[in-house]
Design a binder for these strands. Structure first.
Length: 140
DNA sequence: GCCAACGTTGGC
DNA sequence: GCCAACGTTGGC
């Protein structure tokens, strides 16, 4: 099982939108590094959902329900999409500020100023963020 | 293949 | 609104 983080601008597609719809196609990624991370996702992998531009916080956890397939929104180029469904909304969202103040999270792409929209997260980082969010994963 | 110019992302 | 970081483009 692997862990990831995806960024979304909440006014474009928020975690609440995902909760409302129950499932979404994660498409439109046009960055090779991010695409390659998406291609490494497996069904069941857990994904931290981060609101960029506004909010600037991790707000929820999602799960990969369909592995990489050709992005139907790509008119040219070799791009991929995955499907995600919501797992749980964090009881206390974890802000970028908090993350930056947490020694164990300094290695995250988010902190290291990468603008990657899809990035890997370690199990320890994932667990730490859930703990900071005072949130436990629901039993499957 | 190098690298300057340009565009985009995203925090501040 | 600014601008740093990063990716892409295109001339050479």
């Amino acid at each position: 099982m692997n862990y990831w983080l995806v960024k979304s601008e909440p006014y474009v597609y928020s975690f609440d939108d995902l909760l409302r719809e129950g499932k979404t196609m994660w498409d439109g990624v046009r960055n090779y590094a991010a695409r390659n991370h998406m291609r490494a996702m497996k069904v069941g992998d857990l994904v931290l959902y981060y609101h960029s531009n506004e909010g600037l916080e991790v707000v929820g956890v999602a799960r990969v329900v369909r592995e990489a397939y050709p992005d139907p929104t790509a008119t040219k180029g070799d791009w991929s999409a995955v499907d995600l469904e919501p797992v749980i909304k964090l009881r206390r969202p974890v802000s970028l500020k908090q993350i930056k103040q947490t020694p164990q999270l300094q290695q995250m792409h988010l902190v290291r100023n990468s603008r990657l929209s899809v990035s890997p997260v370690t199990e320890a980082e994932f667990a730490k963020i859930l703990k900071m969010a005072e949130t436990e994963l629901p039993p499957r």
